Computed example of a mutant assay.
Amino acid sequence: MQKVGIIGTGSIADVHLDSWRRMPGVELVGYYDLVPEAATRAAQRYGGRSFASLEALLAAVDVVDVCTPAATHKEIVLAAAAAGKAIICEKPLARHLADACEMVEACQRAGVMLFPAQVVRFFPMYRRVKERIDAGAIGRPAVYRSARCGAFPRPGAKFSASHYADFAQSGGVALDVGVHDIDFARWCCGEIERVFARGLTLANRPYQDHAQIVLRFTSGAIGYIEASWAHPRGVFRTRVEVAGDGGLIEWDSLERSPLLAELYDEARGAQRIVSSPIAPEDEPYYAELAHFIDVIEGRAQPIVTAYDGLEAVRAALAAIESMRTGQPVALKDFGG
């Protein structure tokens, strides 16, 4: 039985907790949040108890699930690594590259698992794209295109608009949103050689942030990623397309939505859910967390590693640097 502790009890923690509480072989021990009342509310809803300090929570658990904003990840992960705890950490791994490097190195020295929660790898449609590429169905990947587009996160009890709008904290849409597709593109096409980007991230328009990111892979393949907070509210679109020398595979959420539900929850507000009527274990967040447990218990090799999380952050920050300078950025020379 793995004893799980949650750090940070905002919106993404709710998503994780919906899966943790249904998962066999784990016990939700408790929660730590800088706002004690938020940790107490989580305990009342999901079971377990609130802790008055990070140190107290670490002493009571085997596994740490970090669900706080990226700028706070380093301090938490370093403390958890020093305490010898297995760690799953929400994306992006860190706000700054130096912090991500320090986190990865600390966990390596401590011999603990640091698992970046790059959940797109666990969405069934994206995994199917990767499986078909690995099976040789489209030949050698040559062109990658993807989009992840919606409105600016809605302010409310479970979202902090001020956090997302503060570039120093969130990194804007290129880091907070683009890191998903950068990671998936790298999974499909291999290491990234250089990055070129344009967008609104540095244009002092945080509530309409938008980024176009071009990747050149060491294989010679080219990737095009659109990440946006500038779309109308109520529509969230994801799309992926990979063309190879033997064919093409694609998926678009707007064209293939087998089930649409609009629900209202007093604690969480309105939710628009697009999903398939699949088994709970196939839901991406459940699949991600269950895989993490399988890895730390020795039943599986990690689908995503700490190095993958680090390199996704590197490329996303390189995209921001490209926006700032107007020039392409070579990853081998980038340490910003």
Rank of each mutant, 00 (worst) to 15 (best):
L78S: 10
R41C: 00
L93W: 04
K91L: 02
R109C: 08
V104D: 05
C89R: 00
V104I: 09
L54N: 02
R49Y: 03
A110Y: 09
C89E: 00
L54W: 04
A59T: 06
L34I: 15
G111T: 11
L54A: 07
P116S: 12
A83P: 06
V120C: 07
P92C: 06
R45D: 11
Q44G: 15
E37G: 00
T68K: 05
V119N: 12
V77C: 05
S53F: 12
P69S: 14
Q118P: 00
A59Q: 14
V29R: 11
D99A: 06
A71N: 15
A39E: 09
I87H: 10
R95I: 03
A81C: 03
Y32L: 04
L58N: 04
Y31S: 09
T40I: 10
F51R: 01
A59D: 15
V35W: 05
V35T: 12
A56M: 04
E55F: 01
G84V: 09
V112Q: 05
A80L: 02
T68I: 14
A98K: 06
A110R: 10
A38V: 14
H96K: 12
A83M: 08
Y32Q: 08
Y32A: 11
R49K: 15
L54F: 03
K91M: 00
A52G: 14
T40Y: 02
D99V: 01
L34N: 12
Q118D: 10
P36N: 10
Y31R: 08
S53C: 13
T72V: 06
Y46N: 06
A94T: 00
S50I: 07
G30V: 12
T40Q: 11
S50T: 09
L58R: 07
R121Y: 15
A100E: 01
K85S: 12
T68M: 08
E102S: 13
I76G: 02
A43H: 03
A98H: 04
D65S: 15
R109I: 11
